[in-house]
Design a protein around this nucleic acid. Structure first.
Ligand SMILES: [Zn+2]
Ligand SMILES: [Zn+2]
Ligand SMILES: [Zn+2]
Ligand SMILES: [Zn+2]
Ligand SMILES: [Zn+2]
Ligand SMILES: [Zn+2]
Length: 488
DNA sequence: GAGTTTGAAACT
DNA sequence: CAGTTTCAAACTC
């Protein structure tokens, strides 16, 4: 089911769902200042693809976190590997992309992130989006189709091909991937004038703050999600609209996420408008390089997952690493290292979190965190760093990164006898296991062991005593949990 | 900037 | 699989 039949655009079965793609042309900027337009040719180099049984087949559509992503083979060295969120489909040998803001350049008819709909979006959501773009542009067919509540995928399963005329020049199509011809259709080659337009949106765009980082964030890094794969346009907009970090605000009863920490040079150019007559040095620098946080690896040669660049499937560029082998000068070593990682974890180069949809704070970390001392309220915690709440997949101790968690001073221990918030218990079952609880429990067990020793019990008996004590501790913990939740 | 803390990744 | 070591980033001063 999850495989492409062959090189000739044979899309099959469930694998290929519809995509909304602006019918306008777009260019994509990827490293080395290469500009691609329309579809992007898949790049593959090195040993011919041999798929071991323990390896995943590529290209593949994965649905790990409830969100579908199209993955390009990480071993292919294709520059689009780090951007699964923007690979709408792959009709070998082409990627068909929904490029993120900041990568769009010289579009024939400008389109906005809002106009590009992730293909998992429902028609209802799309309708909203369309409505927000234009009130009059949508043609009848579009209105009819978009107002229905079937998801796009259902529409496509029903064989619909939807074309929306969203605004003049900014057509949008629902592509039925079962018909390769239709995929090619919006990719009419751009023979038009090279457009000296800015990288990003002009100031007269009323929604520009949502498309570009706001000035406040200009000196700040993006969260890692955004660095990696740029995040979806939707994520970006929801990000910038909540660019505050009230976590130091003791009134807050819910963890919140700081988008303003860090020291590396940020994509400040996102807000830069072309300075007329000015030197466009920023233009010569890859947008991507400015977005990617440089690593500082020294001992891993940037060929282990310790290196964020490597882990996100990117090649090091503008990094401060020493002995770096994560580059095209060390292709074979890099390839070998990636293979080792993939053997350990076939999804090693997949994003660890889902995509944040509009109005949906919930996302998930694939593996969850294992924090013990940070309360999951510092960037040591991968969940917190990703601006997501801890979930049941986390095995953290003393977690406070959940909905409704009373955000407390991190420095001190939590005040004794503070019942964990009930809603938090549902979100993060282990959140009640605070450092204090652990310490108290250990104290009880130790005391019991000492008592057994004093009374000179045999070892099996002593062990039994300790276990029973542990059982009592657990009972007590559970009881206090229920007491604080009001459940009997 | 130096030194410490942290938890994921790697290793055994 | 668990315990330990290594690693680079986050954090603190
Ligand atoms: Zn590195
Ligand atoms: Zn790097
Ligand atoms: Zn490097
Ligand atoms: Zn955590
Ligand atoms: Zn977590
Ligand atoms: Zn947690």
């Amino acid at each position: 089911m999850n495989n492409f039949g062959g090189p000739e655009c044979s899309f099959q079965g469930d694998l290929n769902r519809g995509s909304f793609v602006p019918a306008s042309l777009f260019h994509v900027e990827i490293p080395n200042e290469v500009f691609y337009s329309g579809s992007v040719h898949h790049y593959s180099e090195g040993p011919p693809h041999t798929t071991n049984p323990d390896e995943l087949g590529y290209p593949r559509l994965d649905n790990d976190l409830g969100k579908s992503r199209m993955y390009c083979d990480p071993l292919s060295q294709c520059p689009l590997v780090p951007y699964p969120d923007y690979l709408l489909c792959q009709a070998a040998p082409y990627h068909f992309m929904n490029p993120p803001v900041g990568l769009c350049k010289n579009t024939l008819s400008t389109w906005t992130p809002e106009e590009a709909f992730p293909y998992w979006m429902t028609s209802a959501e799309m309708h909203e989006g369309v409505a927000s773009i234009t009130s009059e542009g949508a043609d009848e067919h579009c209105k009819q189709t978009c107002s229905r509540h079937e998801s796009v995928t259902e529409l496509l399963d029903m064989g619909h091909n939807v074309v929306c005329n969203v605004n003049d020049g900014g057509q949008m199509m629902v592509l039925n991937h079962c018909s390769p011809n239709q995929i090619i259709q919006p990719m009419v080659q751009d023979q038009s004038t090279p457009n000296p337009d800015p990288l990003l949106y002009a100031a007269d765009h009323t929604h520009s703050p949502e498309r570009c980082l706001t000035q406040e964030t200009a000196d700040s890094p993006l969260p890692k999600q955004v660095q990696r794969g740029f995040s979806s346009p939707m994520y970006l907009s929801s990000l910038t609209s909540s660019n505050v970090h009230p976590s130091s605000n003791s009134n807050s009863s819910t963890p919140s996420y700081n988008f303003t920490l860090g020291t590396y040079i940020s994509p400040s150019s996102c807000t830069e408008l072309p300075k007329p007559g000015g030197v466009e040095s920023s233009e010569t620098q890859s947008v991507r390089e400015r977005l990617k946080k440089p690593c500082n690896c020294t001992r891993s040669q940037c060929l282990k997952l310790y290196c964020d660049c490597f882990a996100s499937g990117e090649v090091c560029s503008n990094c401060n690493c020493t002995n770096c082998c994560n580059n095209m000068e060390h292709k074979s070593e890099r390839y070998r290292a990636m293979k080792i990682c993939l053997k350990r974890n076939p999804k090693a180069f997949h994003p660890k979190t889902g995509i944040r949809k509009v109005g949906d704070v919930k996302s998930r970390h694939t593996k969850g965190c294992n924090c013990k001392r940070s309360g999951c309220l510092k960037n040591y915690c991968e969940c917190y760093e990703a601006k997501i709440m801890c979930s049941s997949t986390c095995k953290c101790i003393g977690c406070r990164n959940y909905d409704g968690s009373p955000v407390r001073e991190l420095t001190g221990r939590e005040t004794p006898n503070t019942p964990e918030n009930s809603s938090g218990l549902h979100k993060c079952p282990l959140s009640c296991i605070t450092p204090d609880v652990v310490e108290a429990t250990c104290g009880c067990l130790l005391a019991q062991a000492e008592e057994a020793e004093r009374e000179r019990h045999t070892q099996p008996h002593a062990e039994r005593m300790i276990l029973e004590e542990f059982g009592q501790c657990l009972t007590q913990i559970v009881r206090s949990m229920f007491k604080s939740t009001g459940v009997q």
